[in-house]
Amino acid sequence: MSKLNSLAISENGFIFKPSTGESFTTNEIGLLIISFLKQGKTADEIINEITKEFDVDAISAGRDLYEYLDFLKREKMLD
């Protein structure tokens, strides 16, 4: 199972990492990014989805996405 798929994520934005017992909170965009990553979407596809869903341009969406990917990798939640 991938690291991302092993996470328990509630619709309220509460993330539980069963391998370490750590928990995190995330916002709506974070939840959306995780959901798209689980679906196997590429970065460009995710940026496109974010711009459609929120009132944000592609540059800001890209910045948000890469910041969030850094966070997921730093916390060892992403392979």
Partner: peptide, 18 residues
């Protein structure tokens, strides 16, 4: 994993992990 440790080093809260 201990979530809260007392000044005596004892777990006052903990969570099961995989």
């Amino acid at each position: 994993r201990k979530q809260y440790i007392t000044d005596k080093g004892k777990a006052w809260g903990g969570i099961t992990i995989n």
